[in-house]
Simulated assay, not measured.
Amino acid sequence: MCQMWKDRGAAFCGECGRALDRPPAEKRKGNIFHTIIKFSAALFLLSVVCALLADIASAGNILDALENKSLGFYIPLGLEDIVLFRLSGTGLSAYFVIELAVIGLFGAYATYRTFAVRKECGDDPDRMAHTDLSAAASILCVTLATSLIYLMFMAAGGHTADTSWMDRYSRWEMMFMLTNAGLQEELAYRLVLIGIPMAVIAFAKYRDVKCWRFLLGGFGMSKVAFILILVSSAIFGLGHYDGWGWVKVIDAFAGGILFAYAYSEYGLHVCVLIHFVNDTLTLFPGGIFIELAMMGLGLIILIYWIIKPNRSAYRFTDMPSMPPRPEGKVLSMWERH
Rank of each mutant, 00 (worst) to 15 (best):
M128N: 09
F153Q: 00
M154Y: 11
A135T: 11
L144S: 06
S164D: 11
G122K: 07
H159M: 09
A188C: 08
T160N: 14
F115M: 12
F153K: 00
I196Y: 00
R168S: 14
Y189Q: 03
T160D: 10
A135W: 02
W165M: 13
R171T: 13
V117L: 11
T163G: 10
M154R: 11
K119N: 08
I139Q: 00
G195E: 03
F153S: 15
T131F: 02
T114L: 01
L187K: 04
G157L: 14
T143I: 09
D132A: 11
G195S: 07
S134D: 02
L151A: 12
M174R: 12
Y112D: 03
C141F: 04
N180C: 14
L148K: 10
S147P: 01
T111S: 10
F115T: 06
C141A: 14
M177T: 10
I149P: 00
M152D: 13
S134Y: 00
R171N: 10
R113N: 14
L178K: 12
D123A: 13
A145D: 09
A155I: 00
H159N: 13
L133G: 04
S164P: 10
L133Y: 00
L144D: 01
S134Q: 03
A161K: 08
V192Y: 02
L191C: 04
S170I: 08
A156T: 05
Y189S: 07
C141M: 06
Y112G: 02
G157P: 04
P125R: 07
T143Q: 01
D126E: 14
A145N: 11
L193H: 02
I139M: 12
R168Y: 12
F176I: 08
M152C: 15
V192N: 03
F176M: 02
V142N: 01
I149F: 07
T160F: 09
G182C: 11
Y169G: 05
E173C: 09
L183G: 01
E120C: 08
A155K: 12
G158W: 12
A188S: 14
D124M: 03
R118V: 02
D123E: 12
S147Y: 10
M174D: 03
G195A: 06
E120S: 09
D126V: 04
V142P: 06
T163C: 03
C141I: 06
A181G: 15
R190Q: 08
I139H: 00
T146V: 15
G158V: 07
E173M: 09
A136D: 09
F153H: 00
D124S: 08
R190W: 02
T143E: 01
P125K: 04
R171Q: 12
E173W: 05
E186T: 10
E120N: 04
T163E: 10
E173H: 09
P125T: 02
T143S: 08
D132T: 05
T160I: 11
D132Y: 06
T146F: 12
C121K: 09
M175Q: 10
M175P: 01
